[in-house]
Nucleic acid binder design. Structure first.
Lengths: 228, 228
DNA sequence: CCATGTTATAGTATATTTGACTAAAAGCTA
DNA sequence: TAGCTTTTAGTCAAATATACTATAACATGG
């Protein structure tokens, strides 16, 4: 057996990290500092280590770029076209993560010169097949958010109904009716009103809600529709 | 670069081949004839070749076991626990295929002593983590069939509404109401009545339908609910 | 402190869809 | 032709979606 820390240089993990802030959906990209993709933007990615699971490798990528906790992280697709990587055959397993942008400090990991959020509608050309990987992950997210309440991972713990609606609008790329959106969501009983209201806003302060994990766990198995 | 036909012995593709016949959902399993899994049942799988895409490898597995054409074949998940395979680190990409069992001849490929259909409710213990892979693929299928009309791939070109209903019942593992099932399906306009009726049945012959690819293509992008 | 604007939240009315049924029609068997 | 099985059409109340309108809460400017 090879050493635990040795890498398998045929397999990598690439991670599409989605963040949400001020009604905008963004993705975290890095700029490569070395190798033949030097200077190009790319999704954060790493080689898989010899005794490391794929999930663990994906989690390692996240913690390299930013300090995280309790993050939604899930595999979505594996990419293995023979020519997707130059000079050798590399298969990459795609993961996507959802996190709330606020209060995250970014720090460029090794071999990376820059780390920045990019609006989902303004993504630069990237190295390898990373634009394709990003697109697939976004389609996956659009589908998934309509069947499981994963969107909450992109919001702070306490949020208003309008925040949530803006999140859905950003991901689904369509306007939604406010009263109807509220009604559908409240009926699911996934939200609990906090004893708090919005502060420092120049209009009537909205109720803050938080996500009810218990109901979530009960519903997640049964599967339920989140169609808006 | 390695030779085109050389294998990457860190990456395999395993394929869950679903078939449907007489209201029963089955999976094609092989019995290994060599190696340290000799004698055990397993999902059909192969090493990925050096200049072969993952999709191509999956298709090669299908054609090794049986003569197929126009088959639904799709990647669903990649499995990479460090200890999933004995003695070395192997990551496997899971695919699932849907096909109509009738008129398929099976032939055992290399290193395989037996190939047989197994009812989904009666699966033997398998080599490696193949039971887990199968279970994940089945959950994926249950979800997918409720959002895309992929079920037709398991039926012959012409089928009755009852055939289709039995298929849904087998996959979702629940009884459905006949008149309501018809109504929902007909409203989608995915089915076209053939100029033919069922033959050789000892009761009123049912209308035969076929699947309308054009409507399908229009709907597949928009995404639509198939919930029964 | 009142008028005004903005947003939150409640409510309503109509159309559509579900779910659980009933019933008629078609066609084999004998 | 009677009896049986299965297909196919239809009914009806309950639930849900959609497109609105209306009111309440609160900040701000005069």
């Amino acid at each position: 057996m090879p050493l635990p820390n040795e890498i398998i240089d045929a397999i990598s993990v690439d991670c599409v990290i989605f963040g949400f802030k001020k009604a905008e959906l963004s993705v975290l990209l890095v700029r490569h500092a070395t190798g033949n993709s030097q200077g190009q933007w790319a999704l954060p990615g790493e080689w898989v280590k010899c005794n490391e699971s794929l999930d663990a490798a994906a989690y390692r990528i996240l913690t390299t770029q930013t300090a995280v906790e309790n993050i939604f992280l899930e595999q979505f697709q594996t990419f293995g076209e023979p020519d997707r990587f130059p000079d050798k055959r590399v298969i990459t397993v795609g993961y996507y993560a959802l996190l709330n942008i606020e209060n995250f400090k970014l720090h460029a990991g090794p071999s990376v010169s820059e780390v920045t959020w990019h609006n989902i509608n303004n993504i630069p050309a990237m190295a390898f097949d990373h634009n394709k990987i990003l697109e697939k992950s976004f389609l996956h997210l659009q589908h998934k958010i309509q069947h499981e309440p994963i969107g909450f991972n992109l919001l702070p713990k306490k949020f208003t109904l309008l925040h949530l609606q803006e999140l859905y609008e950003a991901i689904l790329d369509e306007k939604l009716d406010k009263p109807n959106f509220r009604r559908k969501l409240m009926k699911m009983n996934l939200l609990v009103a906090c004893n708090e209201k919005q502060k420092d806003v120049s209009h009537r302060a909205a109720q803050l809600y938080r996500f009810d994990k218990k109901v979530y766990d009960r519903l997640i198995d049964k599967g339920f529709s989140f169609e808006m």
